[in-house]
């Protein structure tokens, strides 16, 4: 080959290599940026899903405030609220015509799901009808409670005495 032909071939090879390298670099950059875009989009989607979930939760919380407060009122929020409960029962006793004494107050924790209960025993006496009625009154108190034992004895022909042990649940589900 002549010298000019060799020069042309050499220049062509150089240009070809340069073009190939630039093409490779551009292709690599395109791929890398595409991967970054995909990860950013996935992050944005997760964030928007979280925001939407938060908004839904907030809306449900605002709409159900009254119902949840009402449900909460059926529980004792803490152990100190048992005093109010005892005062309530003791105020009901004269209204129901029975003589009431409170025996014992304990805090129990059952193994079912770690629920806490206040266990309290009442002894009250009056006529049989009043005693039975007061037992029903205790059963229907607006609390989450359960009567664990009920004993009723006839002290005399006209006076009956009952001993009731009940458990009231302690729960504060907002915590």
């Amino acid at each position: 080959m002549s010298k000019s032909t060799k020069n042309i071939v050499l220049i062509s090879i150089i240009i070809f290599v340069a073009s190939a390298v630039s093409l490779g670099v551009m292709a690599y950059q395109v791929k890398e940026q595409g991967n970054q875009l995909s990860s950013h989009v996935a992050t944005l989607q997760a964030e928007s899903a979280q925001v939407e979930s938060y908004n839904k939760l907030k809306k449900i919380s605002e709409e159900t405030t009254e119902d949840r407060d009402l449900l909460q009122s059926y529980f004792l929020e803490k152990e100190s609220n048992s005093i109010d409960f005892l005062n309530l029962v003791e105020s009901l006793a004269p209204q129901a015509g029975v003589q009431l004494d409170t025996e014992g107050l304990d805090v129990l924790e059952t193994g079912e799901n770690g629920a806490k209960w206040i266990e309290v025993s009442f002894v009250f006496s009056a006529s049989r009808e009043r005693v039975q009625n007061f037992i029903k009154v205790l059963e229907t108190l607006p609390y989450v409670l359960r009567l664990t034992s009920v004993e009723m004895d006839g002290m005399s022909a006209s006076e009956w005495e009952a001993r009731v042990t009940m458990q009231v649940q302690i729960l504060d589900y907002d915590k």
Partner: peptide, 19 residues
């Protein structure tokens, strides 16, 4: 990569709030 930039609300990604 045509649809990568589209942000769609995929319900499967939403956390299920049970009330």
């Amino acid at each position: 990569n045509k649809n990568v930039g589209d942000i769609t609300s995929d319900s499967s990604q939403d956390e299920v709030i049970v009330y």
